[in-house]
Design a protein around this nucleic acid. Sequence first.
DNA 1: GTGCTGACTGCAG
DNA 2: ACTGCAGCCAGCA
Length: 113
Amino acid sequence: MLNSTFFNDVYEVVKLIPRGRVTSYGAIAKYLGSAKSSRMVGYAMNAAHTLPDVPAHRVVNRKGLLTGKHHFSTPTWMQEQLEKEGVKVIQDQVVNFEQVFWNPFTELDLENE
DNA sequence: GTGCTGACTGCAG
DNA sequence: ACTGCAGCCAGCA
């Protein structure tokens, strides 16, 4: 159920990703306190696919590659969504990944301070 | 109930 | 620099 803290936390963090920004599975996993559970984040995305408010397309791997695009309705949908939000993607790779990268530690920590 | 797989990452060879 | 393996947790056969 949604009581699963890990998945639930993953969804909330992903939902917090601002438009035009992306983050990595490892960043979310680490933020949740389980850096080694980065796979679970991606797996959560698979389950998140059933949820309406979980922009899984804003989550990429640490290299900025749209590894999960193949899991969406169409292999191009993810890239299109990102480009619509202002994130340029070339050959499944996010351009200026470091610039569009949304770090939960930095962003959330700053607001929390 | 047991076992395998999976949208990742980091370390070791 | 590249390839291979182990760890994490949940869902499905």
